[in-house]
């Protein structure tokens, strides 16, 4: 029983890492830039389709598709941000919600038109298949890989925001865009690049998550609520909070699916409500 519990716990952690990779960009966009981007899941879906298309039609190895998915989604997001989103930065949240929900439905329809409604298959390379013994516990190699990638990305994001000049510019631009502009920071450019990195990470998460999350045109709608739970429970704009919340959500979701499948959804939302009642600004969020 303990072995099963630990295995499910580890699977939940791996699942949480995927949620973190996809949600961190949304947390940054909403928390730092104040923009409600409900189309964020579409960027993750786009990353997944980039990976499957490259693998199935061009025979590109899975590991190579990952940076390509990151880069292509990041580039596409710059176009979307410059052409569409920046017009909505000064509009109210309702306008932003309606606009980005509309974009989500358009992306779902567009992908259905190109690829059809069915699930996209993915074959992992042999070295990522199978299981390995870790401290006496049998864990999936791919899930171990997901945990490692998630932790590496979390460390890179934290170091990037806290230890680099670009990170300081992001924080300055978020603190006071007028003053940052007056001191020579191109706030629009900084936000566009930040948005692109966040979207690129969603694309990476989408590509990594094909096997575990599945990939159909409904992806952005199916997982949107989970991404929002991670962002709100973690605290807007908090990298550590998003990581913690993603792990909590991933583990609880996996546990309830395994042990209490009938009321799994109820429990995850009940936990969210309880956590937000306890800490309204999220686990590691700052009071605004």
């Amino acid at each position: 029983m303990l072995a099963i519990l630990l295995t499910v716990l580890f699977d939940g952690l791996a699942y949480g890492m995927l949620l973190f990779l996809i949600s961190i960009g949304l947390s940054v966009t909403m928390g730092m830039m104040g923009f409600v981007n409900l189309a964020h899941g579409a960027f993750a879906m786009f990353g997944g389709y980039v990976a499957t298309t490259l693998m199935q039609r061009a025979g590109v190895p899975f590991l190579v598709t990952l940076p390509v998915a990151f880069a292509l989604v990041a580039l596409a997001s710059i176009v979307v941000e410059r052409l569409l989103y920046q017009r909505l930065y000064r509009r109210g949240p309702l306008d932003q919600v309606l606009f980005t929900v509309g974009l989500t439905f358009m992306s779902v329809a567009g992908i259905t038109w190109f690829y059809g409604p069915s699930q996209q298959p993915v074959v992992l390379p042999a070295f990522l298949q199978g299981q390995v013994s870790l401290f006496g516990l049998e864990v999936g190699i791919f899930r171990l890989f997901l945990v490692a990638v998630g932790l590496l990305v979390a460390a890179a994001v934290v170091l990037g925001v806290e230890r680099t000049r670009f990170g300081a510019k992001i924080r300055a631009a978020v603190d006071n865009p007028v003053m940052a502009t007056g001191l020579g920071i191109n706030v629009g450019g900084v936000f566009a690049l930040t948005f692109a990195i966040g979207s690129g990470l969603a694309g990476l998460g989408g590509a990594l998550g094909i096997q575990i999350l599945g990939l159909t045109p409904a992806f952005p709608l199916k997982y949107l609520v989970l991404f929002l739970i991670v962002v709100s429970v973690g605290g807007l704009g908090s990298v550590g909070g998003a990581l913690l919340a993603a792990c909590v959500v991933g583990v609880i979701d996996m546990m309830t699916k395994y042990f209490l499948p009938e009321i799994g959804s109820f429990i995850i939302y009940a936990v969210m409500v309880a956590l937000l009642m306890w800490r309204p600004h999220g686990l590691l969020g700052k009071k605004s």
Partner: peptide, 21 residues
């Protein structure tokens, strides 16, 4: 520019406030 409100960046240390721009 030294604005009336000072507008020190709260998320940055003193050194970062000075060095960032």
């Amino acid at each position: 520019w030294v604005p009336q409100e000072r507008w020190i960046f709260p998320s940055l240390t003193v050194r970062e406030n000075l060095a960032v721009t």
